Simulated scan of single mutants.
Amino acid sequence: MTEPEPLQRLQKVLAAAGLGSRRACEELIAAGRVTVDGRKAQLGDRADPRVSVVYVDGLRVVTDDRMVHLALNKPRGVLSAMSDDRGRRTLAQYVPGDVTRLFHVGRLDADSEGLLLLTNDGDLAHRLMHPSYEVAKTYLAQVPGPVPPAVGRRLRDGVQLEDGPAAVDRFRVVSTDRDRALVEVVLHEGRNRIVRRMLAEVGHPVERLIRTRIGPVALGDLRPGVTRPLGREELGGLYRAVEAGAR
Rank of each mutant, 00 (worst) to 15 (best):
V206H: 08
P165V: 00
H188C: 11
V195E: 03
S175P: 02
V206W: 07
V174C: 09
A166Q: 11
V195G: 11
L199P: 14
H188E: 02
R180H: 14
L161Y: 05
I194N: 11
D179T: 12
D179W: 11
R196L: 01
P205T: 07
S175F: 01
N192P: 05
A181T: 08
P205F: 04
H204E: 00
L199N: 02
I210L: 15
H188F: 06
I194V: 15
R178K: 14
E162A: 15
E184A: 09
A167R: 14
P165L: 02
D177E: 14
V202L: 09
I210R: 11
M198Y: 06
V206Q: 07
N192S: 09
R191W: 09
N192C: 05
M198A: 03
V202Q: 04
L182G: 02
P205R: 08
V185R: 00
S175R: 15
L187H: 02
G203M: 08
D163M: 07
E207M: 15
R211A: 00
H188R: 02
A166T: 09
F171R: 04
G203W: 10
H188W: 02
I210K: 12
L199G: 10
A200E: 14
E201S: 14
A181Y: 10
D177T: 13
Q160P: 04
R178S: 14
D163K: 08
V174W: 10
M198W: 03
P165C: 02
R180Y: 07
H188I: 12
V168T: 12
R180S: 14
L182E: 12
V195Q: 02
R170L: 06
V195I: 12
Q160Y: 02
R180M: 11
V202T: 05
V159R: 08
M198T: 01
L209M: 09
V168D: 02
F171C: 10
L199V: 10
L187F: 07
R197N: 05
M198G: 05
E184L: 05
F171T: 05
E162F: 10
S175A: 15
R191T: 11
E162G: 13
R211Q: 03
V168E: 01
H204K: 07
L199T: 03
V185I: 08
A167S: 14
V185Q: 01
P205M: 06
Q160H: 12
M198V: 04
V206R: 08
D179P: 00
I210V: 15
D169R: 15
T176I: 05
V195L: 01
V168P: 11
R208S: 05
R208L: 09
A181S: 14
R211E: 02
R196S: 03
R193H: 13
L187D: 03
E184N: 08
P205E: 04
R170Q: 15
